[in-house]
């Protein structure tokens, strides 16, 4: 999960930073988290780089659409939609807790999509786990939505990407986490250049935030390998519920909860 959704409220509510500058710092933080921890996931063979580049077409396209739509769609509507997506995702993840590593295989048994299949080593169970990619079109559609909301809300949208991969593509949770983390940097980069040129990324604020994010991301990446999938899923469900409550508050007008 990216740090973006936590950075904006912390900077605006506690440090009193302007919201645009906070969003700029948040985007840098998202990229820092993604790049800082990606190496560890790649070495552990948890990241599916082929799947990531395919899904990045949808996330970057969504982010580009978000850049165009920013200012057109009202923010409370976005927060309400985000809250609904988070609640549905939390419910879906909770329902699939007992099926953490053994996904039922469906869909075509051959074809181009099979080139995205892979294996990952799960230290918690002490062996390699093979997995297949399912329902790629549904995954691409959800990734487009994640990219769109990412650009509109100024977040990495890892909270949307992981459930999308988990429920639509049927990826194991550790592969979802690692691949999502690998992708969020590119999604954020789609808007970071524009923020930097506009002057919304202030070095004195974004610098320390980026530094702290890299250190936190490195620690998180090392911990992920040793955590059991079901425990990780439960942590995500709790995080999703907390964020959903924040979004509901923001949608009904308690805007300061999100610092928007």
């Amino acid at each position: 999960m990216s740090s973006g959704i936590f950075i904006v409220p912390i900077l605006t509510l506690i440090a009193g930073v302007d919201v645009r500058v906070a969003i700029g710092a948040s985007i840098v933080s998202v990229i820092a988290c993604s790049c800082g921890s990606a190496a560890s996931f790649l070495k552990e063979r948890l990241t599916n780089v082929r799947l990531a580049i395919v899904l990045e077409t949808a996330t970057t396209l969504g982010a580009a659409s978000g850049v165009l739509l920013s200012g057109v769609v009202s923010v409370p509507v976005l927060y309400a939609v985000f809250a609904m997506v988070l609640l549905v995702s939390a419910w879906q993840m909770l329902m699939r807790r007992g099926n953490a590593t053994a996904h039922p295989h469906g869909g075509p048994t051959d074809g181009w999509v099979r080139r995205l299949d892979s294996v990952y080593p799960d230290r918690a169970i002490g062996s390699d786990v093979a997995y297949r990619i399912e329902r790629l079109p549904a995954g691409l559609a959800l990734m487009y939505g994640a990219g769109l909301l990412s650009a509109l809300l100024g977040i990495g949208s890892g909270v949307l990407k992981i459930p999308a991969m988990d429920t639509a593509l049927r990826l194991p949770i550790k592969v979802s986490s690692a691949t999502s983390n690998f992708m969020i940097g590119v999604t954020a980069a789609a808007s970071a250049g524009a923020y930097f040129i506009r002057g919304a990324i202030v070095p004195a604020i974004a610098g320390p935030v980026a530094l702290g994010s890299v250190v936190g991301a490195l620690l998180g990446a090392r911990l992920l390998v040793f955590i059991a999938p079901n425990k990780l899923r439960l942590v995500f469900v709790v995080a999703l519920l907390v964020l959903a409550i924040q979004m509901v508050f923001a949608a009904v007008g308690v805007r300061r909860v999100l610092g928007a």
Partner: peptide
């Protein structure tokens, strides 16, 4: 898409 998105963002600025 990344390049296009940056250009769009700057233009919309």
């Amino acid at each position: 898409i990344l390049v296009a998105s940056t250009l769009l963002g700057v233009a919309a600025g």
